[in-house]
Structures are given as C-alpha cells and as structure tokens.
Amino acid sequence: MTMDLGQIIKEKAHELLASKKVECVLGYERATDGKTARPLFAYTPEETERFIFDETCVHGLAKFLLNWKDKSTAIVAKPCDVRSVNLLLQEKQLNRDKVFIMGVVCPGVAECSWDRVGPPQQRCNACPQHNPPVYDFLVGEPVPEKEPQNGVDPEVARIKAMTAAERRAFWNQQFDRCVRCYACRQACPGCYCTECFVDQVDPTWVGIRHSPADNHMWNTVRGFHLAGRCTQCGECQRVCPVNIPLMLVNDELTQEVGDKFAFQPGMDPSTLPPFATFKKDEHLGIG
C-alpha cells in the first residue's frame, strides 16, 4: 500500500464531523489484540484520530447504518460494502441523502481472527471489484480492474457435481454443527427483517430444537432469502463460530440468479433485485 489510507480517512472524517456535515463516521480502529481491527463509530472530531485502514479491516459496516436511519452518517466502505449499501438503498432501507460513502480502493483483506492476521482472503483473490462502484469521496487511487473470472466457482462446481444423496450428506454434516446462534443473520446486511421468520412463534416455521430438520430449515431458508440479494461480503461465513461454509449456499444462488437474470446485486443503487420487481411480459413458468 503506497498511500496511507488510514490517514486520508482520519482527515476526511475530521472534516465531516467538524463541519457537522455528518453526525457519525463509521470506520475501523485497532482491536484490543493490537493486531486486528474492529468497527469504530466516531461522533466527535477528536475521535477520528483512532481510525485506521489496512488488510485487517474485514468487517462489513453497511448494516450498522440501519442503527440510525434518520441521522447523517459517513461510512468507510470497501467495494463489497458499497454493494451492501446499494442493496439497502435499492430496498428503501436507507435514505441516500443521509449516507456519505467514503469508498475505499480495496487492496483485499486478510483472514483475521482474534490475535491473528492470516493470508489474504480467498474471496478477495476472486473479487472483480477493487474500485468502489459508487462513492461520495474516494479513498485511494483507482486501480484497473481484473477481468471477471467466468465460469462456476470451483467449490460450488464440486458440490453441484455431487449426486442429490451426496449433497444431502454433505450439507447434513455441515449443518449438524450449527448452534443456531444466528450470528450469520446478525452480520448480514441483507437480513434486516423486524422479526426474522426463525423467531416467529405463531406460526412456528423452525423449532428451537437443534435437529437435522430444523438446522437444515434455518440454513437453507436463510440462503434463499438472500437469492439475488447477497453482495458476497462474506460476513456470514466470517462470523460463523462453527465454520459452516455458508458462502457456498450464497455463491450458488448468486450464480443461478446471475445466469437467469444477468444481474449482480448491489452494483448500483437504482436497479431493483430480480425478486423485488416484476415485468408484465415476464414468463413465470407457472401457467
């Protein structure tokens, strides 16, 4: 990294708060392990000194914007996070006038966990989007984008090549570990229902029991609710305490929707996701 992106963020955040253009700036600061990062919410110009930006800034911050929809907020956003902001704008969860996007030219982030900074994340290697698709202020110099990798993700292809019975066995083994903490939901920018279907009691869609059927139900429906909406930020998989490869579900559905509707979620704030819109001449395949 030739430019000190953290310094640029500090200065811009200071200016935004000092001029009262925004009430809060969402970004990153150093975590208590002294190695990784954690989200920082700066409300005063003085607090902006704590901002950093480096390969440990893995967290997607878009969802935090939902904490205070009515207040002007600036957000430090990597391209995948910008896509999440776009998703929330498309779905009318945010007011564009209240959001100031500090889009970061992203060098990719690392596999981070407590007290450990690992190798670059796999998803970043494959990511075709290093420049933020939308921004109000650009952090860093734009870089030429790599050619998007065509074809099916090799891991998704491996699962798809299985027989139905093999696939069921694979997912049962993965979902059996689920402790139903719903961290995946809590971290997901697309999961913002006032009451999640899994929390509904009447009717009860999913039991609290950790049975194969209930675990399968939760994990599958979570994936389906994100079909054509997942911005591939990877937060669900990052926060999963039992390492369930949740992005395999999301990536498969992203590919399906991409093939059928030529749509990539969150690339701009105005194009509605396929399942949030309807065209009169659309072939529904149901009649």
Binding site: P39, F41, C181, Y182, A183, Q186, V239
Partner: peptide
C-alpha cells in the same frame, strides 16, 4: 450505548 453501536447481538459470547 456506545458499546452497543458495535455489538451485532450474535449471542456467541453467551454460547461459548
């Protein structure tokens, strides 16, 4: 309130 800004309420702390 400031601490809750950051918390995503994922329950993991309670579970472990």
């Amino acid at each position: 309130t400031r601490l809750a800004d950051r918390c995503i309420h994922c329950n993991m702390c309670a579970f472990v």
